[in-house]
Amino acid sequence: MELDLEPLNLPSDNERPSCVIAGPCSAETEEQVLTTAKQLAAKGCHMFRAGIWKPRTKPGGFEGNGEKALPWMKEVKEETGMLTATEVATPEHVELALKYGIDILWIGARTTANPFAMQALADSLKGVDVPVLIKNPVNPDLELWIGGMERINRAGVKRLGAIHRGFSSVDKKIYRNLPMWQIPIELHRRIPNLPIICDPSHIGGRRDLIAPLCQQAMDLGFDGLIVESHCDPDEAWSDAKQQVTPDVLDYILSLLVIRDEHTTTEGIRQLRSQIDDVDNELMNLLAKRMRICREIGVYKKEHNMTVLQATRYNEILEKRGAQGSLIGIAPECIAHIFELIHEESVRQQLEIVNQ
């Protein structure tokens, strides 16, 4: 996958993640915006974010001040020198944001999930040279995420980045949105020159989860962070539980360990060689397993048996899950692996039975 990209050229701090965008969930009042911005600037933050238009899941909540708040963002830039960033969801938002000199635009998860909305935004961005960051769609659909980026890129926007904010799920567990790190990892594999920024605020949904999520993002080689920070988070008008003060954010960033993804030593080369050998063994074992599955398919066809044997499948998942626990692998991981193996086994047996 190739996009016609240019570097984002955003300010960075060599001692921290290369890109940190911080500020409140919503631009509530002029005082709140300027107070937060000045506190963040004093901590060395170069980019200020705030929601001008707030898409809420249900009506009745604070939905942003709209155009009224844009002069506050302009004042932030004038008084602190910080770049400003906000979310846009309609062509009108784009027009107003650019009119008031917003430096960075981002597109939210609900908008990314709608190809019609993405095309409308792409049309409104033609001829505009501004960095655009695109959040993943609410559902775990990598193709939809990439499709949204392609639409914006084809409009001539070359300074593109992705924001990983997690995915909605019925099974929330501890996170507001499940990280599902494998999806941004696959995005990086397919578009290696695309910067990916992590949004720990929306993944975690709780301020106590922000620090570990930031570190995990750095460990996975993410290019930066976008974090919600408020001068008085407990009194925030939206998403109060996931915002931190500028002081707390500064402390979190100061503790981050930034690892070098490009250093490759002889020791790691040898270990990777061992991994390659084991992977080859695994492939040979999988091939052997599928040969046996095909023999079972022939037997089922000859004896007029159904391909799917639910009792046997449940037995496999139960046994292998227990084995996984004994060897230090999460049962959920083992279950997922064997679900995929079973799906391929069933597919091959169906081909034989229906010949």
Rank of each mutant, 00 (worst) to 15 (best):
Y251R: 13
D279L: 15
A117Y: 10
T112A: 09
L271N: 05
T35F: 06
A335R: 15
D277M: 14
S12G: 10
P24G: 07
A50W: 02
H262N: 15
R190W: 05
A89D: 11
I316V: 15
G60Y: 08
G61T: 13
E6M: 09
N139V: 12
L98K: 10
S169R: 06
L34S: 05
Y313M: 10
A117R: 14
I152C: 03
E30Y: 04
L34Q: 07
D277Y: 12
S273A: 12
P17D: 03
E95P: 02
G64H: 06
E351I: 11
T57Y: 09
L40I: 11
L317H: 13
T306I: 11
D208N: 14
R294L: 02
G61M: 15
D219Q: 12
E343G: 13
I52N: 03
D208R: 10
L209G: 01
L225P: 01
W237P: 02
I197E: 01
E339S: 15
I152F: 06
R165V: 06
V307K: 01
I341G: 02
M1H: 11
A22T: 01
A240Y: 10
I341S: 03
G101T: 07
K172F: 09
P59D: 08
P7G: 08
I197Y: 03
I316N: 01
T311L: 14
E143M: 15
L105Q: 03
E186P: 04
R320F: 10
T57D: 08
P195L: 02
N314W: 09
R206T: 07
L220G: 03
V130I: 15
L5P: 03
M283N: 10
E281G: 07
N14T: 12
L96S: 09
I197H: 04
L286N: 06
L142A: 09
I21K: 01
R269T: 10
D223H: 14
E95I: 04
L220C: 06
R16A: 06
T263W: 12
R259Q: 14
Q119L: 04
H46I: 02
K158H: 15
R151S: 13
G328L: 03
R151V: 02
V307A: 04
G321E: 09
P195K: 01
P331G: 05
I174W: 04
A155S: 14
M149L: 15
A287C: 13
G324R: 02
T265R: 10
P200L: 04
V88Q: 04
P233I: 02
D13L: 08
Q243F: 02
N177R: 05
M290I: 07
C333Q: 15
E261L: 14
V88P: 00
E302A: 14
T36R: 06
K77C: 03
A97P: 01
M149K: 00
G23H: 07
Q349L: 01
E92R: 11
R189C: 07
Q323S: 09
I252F: 08
N136S: 13
L133M: 12
K173G: 08
I146D: 00
A27M: 09
P7V: 07
L308I: 15
I226V: 15
Q243L: 08
P246H: 09
A330V: 01
E143W: 08
D279H: 13
M73F: 06
K43A: 11
D250A: 15
I102Y: 03
I52T: 12
G166Y: 06
M180S: 08
P192V: 05
V307N: 04
